[in-house]
């Protein structure tokens, strides 16, 4: 792994680049020199088996974990990330699996939670509602009827939609989605995948963490497979088959792709 080289990649300069990320928890090294590129307008899928380090990598990107080694580039500049506030300022938003919505608040209130628009000391509800409506309209959301519904009345897919809309409300540039379709039915998965695609079409860099290869092949432009804490390979979705990706996930390699040095995996 070449730690210090600036990111080079195919298909335009990446919005977000990680180079040689190491992360250990005590004696256990979870990430070994991971590289990752996220480009504007593309969906990058992050796949890997349980324990491959997907969630750890996401939390490193989000600034929740500090990395032990490696470099973090944003829009070509090297940046230091010390916490979630830093990444939020850069325009990186994470939609976690458990969504973190308040059931007792409505959609607008949830989308602006903690960042309310104010007029003096009072809340500026009309402006917030307008901005929420514009955001949902820009994502062509057709499944939400009224932005003044309580979140408790929404279906799983609608909740996911609200959580994603909340993430893009702040002109964010990169959105990370942690298993957005894990708990959804067929129709709702469809809606959310459409939404994921639209995020990228609107020019955002999207990272999709998923176990479901059907979803990945449907919306992702690139796939980065993690294998035991290493980035086994980053491939264009159109260049690979599903079974090749399965091999990358389960064995770390497939044909001439993947980790060549098998002794490295033995050390884990």
């Amino acid at each position: 792994m070449q730690g210090t080289n600036p990111p080079t990649a195919t298909g335009g300069a990446p919005l977000l680049s990680l180079r040689g990320i190491d992360k250990s928890f005590g004696p256990v090294q979870v990430l070994h020199g991971v590289d990752l590129d996220v480009r504007a307008g593309e969906v990058t899928a992050l796949v890997g088996d349980n324990g491959a380090g997907k969630s750890t990598l996401v939390k490193c990107i989000a600034g929740i974990y500090t990395t032990d080694a490696g470099e973090y580039f944003f829009e070509g500049r090297r940046v230091q990330v010390h916490g979630p506030r830093d990444t939020a300022e850069l325009g990186i938003e994470v939609v976690y699996q458990d969504l973190a919505l308040c059931d007792n608040l409505d959609i607008v209130q949830n989308m602006f939670l903690g960042r309310e628009e104010k007029k003096g000391v009072l809340l500026d509800e009309p402006t917030m509602e307008e901005m929420a409506r514009q955001t949902l309209a820009s994502l062509s959301v057709r499944t939400v009827r009224s932005v003044r519904q309580l979140v408790s009345s929404l279906s799983g897919g609608q909740r996911q939609t609200v959580a994603i809309a909340k993430a893009v409300l702040w002109n964010s540039k990169v959105v990370l989605l942690d298993e957005p379709t894990a708990a959804l039915g067929v129709a709702q998965t469809r809606q959310v995948l459409d939404l994921v695609r639209r995020l990228a079409d609107n020019g955002l860099g999207v990272v999709l963490i998923s176990h479901n290869l059907n979803d990945v092949f449907e919306v992702a432009d690139n796939i980065t497979a993690l294998y035991l804490g290493r980035a086994a390979a980053t491939v264009r979705t159109k260049d690979v088959t599903s079974s090749q990706v399965v091999e990358l996930i389960t064995a770390g390699r497939s044909g001439d792709m993947g980790i060549i040095d098998t002794s490295a995996t033995a050390a884990v």
Partner: peptide, 20 residues
């Protein structure tokens, strides 16, 4: 007020409020 909104948020889902 934002304070009142936060009271409801903490009562509804303290973890979501913390993350916000």
């Amino acid at each position: 007020t934002a304070y009142g909104r936060h009271v409801y948020a903490v009562g509804g889902n303290a973890e979501a409020a913390r993350r916000a």
